[in-house]
Design a protein around this nucleic acid. Structure first.
Lengths: 192, 192
DNA sequence: GTCTATATAATGATAGAC
DNA sequence: GTCTATCATTATATAGAC
């Protein structure tokens, strides 16, 4: 495998396991089976590795955005979307656990992350309105209320896994399903 | 002021501003206007400072628990409780931003934090049922559904401020109010 | 590209004087 | 209780050989 990719994969695994603060470039190099000098040949510093992992995540989100919908939306689609979201977040969980600190360290990264995130948020907004038009959802007329519901759903999707970890619960399919249920619970009163 | 307290106050300010990883014991000592050696006279290490700050927070939560209710609950009471919650969390925001990492580092701390948190969660459950008995809320019969609603409210209260910080928004009264509104939005469909 | 060796700086932590 | 001085350790980062 490409050494650069091996470093990134190893770093991701270690960051997810122990957090960015506890993992040094030496740790990453050792776990990747290369020398510290070699790591610095491929990356200028730890921050650059983190930035690259964010970039990977951004690409995943952007890929997800562009999947075309070939049928009228049904509730099962929403479930699929939410599950996919949880899985991606779980893959890059260290980023979501440490979001405030990581975004503060790196303005460039912050800008691109928030831009992609905003597009995801807007996409979710569209999805809700597609459900509304398909007669599956009966959304309130007040756009402010719809926006609030959306913010709640977004908050759950972004922090549910962190919440599980705080509780010391093992993150598995069943717990992810509970996270899906929570989001459904939010919109359940507005089902047509 | 008591040096020990001064260290804790200074550490809290710095942790909130820059995160625990970026703040060393030397930084804390310098900002507190004392020598590094003096800091180590009062605390064995940085972890002990963090643990003590958690302990302070636990005491605040426990104090909040024991406030007696002298009248039948109305919605304004819920608002008051939620606002108080946000303010406390904001005061100790570094803990909530870094919860996963901090609880993992320290088993003892983890146990006591989760115990106090669980009591808060149970207290919220009671509060909901008091609203139900007072005829303000019309909760679903299914306890699983009630539990889900509660989990959603809890998630919002614990992560709303972090979410604001991720978005780069200034945390002020107006934004906290929006966080209160979100929780009200969750239970709004169940108002009697 | 990859390694070994090493420079530099920071951090956590202690000893001993006052 | 508080300071200064100091140390061991670790982390980041670079130089130069292969």
């Amino acid at each position: 495998m490409d050494t650069r990719e091996k470093i990134l994969d190893t770093a991701l695994t270690l960051f997810n396991k122990e957090g960015t603060a506890a993992v040094s470039t030496n740790h990453i190099a050792e776990a990747a089976g290369i020398s510290p000098g070699n790591l610095y040949y491929h990356f200028h510093n730890k921050q650059e590795i983190i930035r690259e992992l964010f970039q990977r995540l951004n690409i995943i989100w952007e890929t997800l955005e562009s999947i075309p919908q070939d049928h009228a939306p049904v509730m099962a689609d929403l479930k699929t979307v939410i599950e996919a979201n949880y899985k991606i977040i779980w893959q890059y969980r260290f980023l979501y656990r440490e979001l405030v600190a990581l975004l503060r360290q790196d303005t460039e990264l912050r800008t691109s992350f928030l831009a992609v995130r905003q597009r995801g948020f807007d996409g979710f907004h569209e999805l809700l309105h597609m459900f509304s038009e398909a007669g599956v959802l009966d959304l309130p007329d007040d756009p402010k209320v719809v926006n609030e519901l959306q913010e709640i759903c977004w908050l759950i999707s972004e922090f549910w896994l962190t919440n599980l970890e705080v509780n010391g619960l093992k993150v598995n399919e069943a717990e992810m399903q509970r996270g899906v249920n929570l989001i459904f619970r939010v919109i359940q009163p507005y089902l047509a």
